[in-house]
């Protein structure tokens, strides 16, 4: 076994380094693409704040915390804020008047915020979110208004409200575990298999028929050769694929590792057989590619729940 480890792993370290590098490069490229994609689905919202008060700053902070919102400050010098929407630089423009805090305190909030918004579904979503945020800010003032007769100060209401603010009725749960039927995982497996095909070119040194034939004189079969080959290459593919998953933000779970390992082992058994039984390099490459694609199709079908 030591001889095979020396031959397949130690003398062949460049193959593993190149495979790792390929995964890192691919991960980096995919990360950039995903970041670009996320940027495209951000909702640009411009805020023109004429009121230099705590309340207006609070509202802006609350808007900035909204998922997918990309909030920018619009200068108060800007005379035509609606142009931001018209020229599609923003989905919505919120204008906070200079008496915003006063009107909040006086409970005169009807029409206090001016909103320019795109007239489409995205505009509706943004309107709804801004409306919800503004309403939430008003709640303590509404409560204080009702408690005015009992001489309870607004500050006390704020303090109490902070403690007893009702929690949302919806239980939000993000799916973080990779299911064996996750399409993201399937995509990673397919990338892993395609990267794995490169070993046909990288492992030319292992494909020496005469030396392999001599191994058979001593070993009767290639069992140990296969074991070391499949273990070493599966390890590299799985670690590379896990690195790729982490780079692109897919969660890594025991299930994901198991599915990746199973796919890698099946693929590597095929590649090891090709290296020892097919002599022509181009035939090996073609057959490895076909094998990888066949496995990929099977995996995609499994993710989609099989053929109807």
């Amino acid at each position: 076994m030591k001889s095979f480890f020396q031959l397949i792993v130690v003398k062949n370290w460049r193959t593993y380094a190149i495979l790792f590098a390929a995964f890192l490069v691919l991960g980096g490229v995919l990360k950039l693409l995903i970041a670009e994609q996320n940027r495209l689905i951000e909702l640009p919202v411009a805020v023109q704040n004429f009121d230099d008060s705590e309340s207006s700053k609070q509202l802006m902070t609350a808007l900035k915390k909204q998922p997918r919102f990309h909030v920018t400050n619009l200068s108060t010098e800007e005379r035509y804020p609606e142009d931001e929407v018209a020229k599609q630089r923003a989905v919505a423009v919120v204008i906070i008047p200079d008496d915003y805090e006063k009107r909040l305190a006086a409970r005169q909030t009807s029409g206090v915020l001016t909103l320019y918004v795109q007239h489409n579904m995205v505009g509706d979503i943004v309107t709804e979110t801004i409306s919800k945020t503004a309403y939430k800010q008003q709640l303590p003032y509404i409560v204080a208004q009702h408690l005015k007769v009992k001489n309870i100060a607004l500050e006390d209401v704020f303090a109490k409200y902070k403690k007893v603010e009702p929690k949302g009725q919806l239980t939000m749960r993000s799916l973080v575990d990779s299911s064996p039927q996750s399409l993201g995982l399937a995509a990673v497996i397919i990338v892993m298999l395609l990267v794995g095909v490169a070993q046909i070119g990288l492992n030319r040194a292992l494909c020496q028929p005469q030396a392999l034939a001599r191994v058979r004189i001593y070993e009767t079969n290639y069992r140990k050769f296969y074991m070391v080959y499949v273990a070493a290459h599966s390890f590299v593919l799985v670690v590379g694929a896990l690195g790729l998953m982490m780079l692109i933000g897919l969660s890594v779970s025991a299930t994901a590792i198991f599915v990746l390992l199973a796919a890698a082992v099946v693929f590597e058994i095929g590649v090891a057989l090709l290296l020892t039984h097919v002599r022509t390099w181009s035939h090996q490459l073609f057959m490895a590619l076909i094998f990888a694609m066949t496995l990929a199709v099977i995996i995609i079908l499994l993710q989609l729940g099989g053929v109807a």
Binding site: S3, Q6, L7, K11, A205, A211, R214, Y218
Partner: peptide, 19 residues
Amino acid sequence: IALWEHMTVDENLAFFKGL
């Protein structure tokens, strides 16, 4: 010539000895 071409003479001897 049934030897590993990419390995040295000593490495080949060690490999086949190991079997």
